[in-house]
């Protein structure tokens, strides 16, 4: 009862369970501007879906969730299209470079070890930094203030101002060089491709701390960008690996598009520091989960290939 067969995954699943999983992950996506692949893919694998199909079908559903989320955030005035497009161009270029780097790394042997350890350390560092910083912000100022403009004039800020082609990003309320989003987008694209993740987790802190954008605009703008990244991944996966299960994606979509709408509303009601501290906690949970999976001996010494 309530089961649907997923022809590409080659298994059947309970519709209500998938709707609930989609709804939960869509909610997080709408609140924090992350794709949610880090949560969704392992859940789907636990439900008996092959890792490669889980990751690819998840990309397909993120297209829907991020469209829904972008639209909701756009209405709330939270999407900086100009910034998003620049980051996206950088991201595509970075992704292409990253895929080549990963080929070289894999050929050299120890790549998986280096990548995983780097990923864990980075998540730990970013998560801890965000957590401490937003905790201080919450203590100092109970009223949510998302503009980090009152920072001291650091070397980094002077460097940003010294770059050519300065331009104003209205929605974000900042003035930086065109080069910054392009370069940072490329960097995130490279990292995302190497680590095999969507990049939302890296992009959000980059936008908050390196581009100094307000948290709410960061969430809306990341969702806008994730939308295009995932369209690209879905088409690539479908054409080369045949791993997109449309039945699974549609079930997830039904839940996640609704979840994303509620998420956007919740996001709006929260202060910037509250949002940051929750996202930091989420990043740290993912880091701990990865660390545990690395330290605890697996129950079976073989595994199907693929997944994040």
């Amino acid at each position: 009862m309530f089961h649907l067969y997923m022809p590409i995954a080659g298994n059947s699943t309970n519709v209500l369970v998938i709707l609930a999983v989609g709804g939960g992950v869509g909610l997080l996506s709408g609140i924090f501007g992350v794709g949610g692949g880090f949560l969704m893919t392992p859940l789907l694998i636990m439900m008996g879906i092959p890792p490669t199909v889980a990751a690819a079908s998840d990309s397909n559903q993120i297209v829907g969730a991020s469209t829904s989320g972008t639209l909701a955030h756009y209405r709330l005035g939270n999407v900086d299209f100009k910034m998003g497009i620049l980051l996206l161009i950088g991201g595509v270029a970075g992704g292409t470079v990253g895929v080549q780097i990963i080929k070289v790394l894999r050929a050299s042997g120890n790549a998986d070890f280096l990548i995983t350890v780097t990923y864990v350390i980075m998540l730990g560092f970013v998560g801890s930094y965000m957590f401490v910083e937003s905790l201080q912000g919450l203590r100092k100022n109970r009223v949510a203030s998302t503009e980090p403009v009152a920072r001291k004039e650091s070397g980094y800020a002077r460097f940003m101002k010294s770059l050519p082609w300065q331009t104003r990003f209205e929605k974000s309320g900042i003035e930086v060089s065109y080069l910054m989003p392009l370069l940072l987008g490329t960097l995130v694209g490279i990292l995302a491709a190497i680590m095999g993740v969507g990049g939302g987790f890296i992009m959000v802190p980059v936008m908050v701390y390196l581009l100094r954008m307000p948290m709410h605009v960061v969430v809306g703008t990341t969702l806008f960008q994730i939308l295009f990244t995932c369209v690209n991944v879905t088409i690539m996966q479908a054409s080369t690996n045949h791993t997109v299960d449309f039945v699974l994606a549609v079930m997830l979509l039904a839940g996640s598009t609704i979840g994303a709408q509620f998420g956007a509303r919740i996001s709006r009601k929260m202060g910037g520091d509250q949002l940051k501290i929750l996202l930091a906690a989420l990043v740290l949970i993912v880091m701990v989960k990865m660390l545990v999976s690395l330290l605890v001996p697996p129950s079976i010494m073989l595994a199907f290939k693929g997944g994040h």
Binding site: P7, I8, V63, A65, S68, T70, L71, T234, V244, F246
Partner: peptide, 30 residues
């Protein structure tokens, strides 16, 4: 059977259709 034949026989078209439907679902829900 229809999904399988599309996915394995016309992968790119299938990917584009899957993306478009996801996009439409997101817009519709919005």
């Amino acid at each position: 059977a229809l999904i399988s034949s599309l996915a394995f026989g016309h992968g790119t078209l299938y990917g584009i259709l899957a993306s478009l439907i996801a996009l439409a679902a997101g817009l519709f829900m919005g």
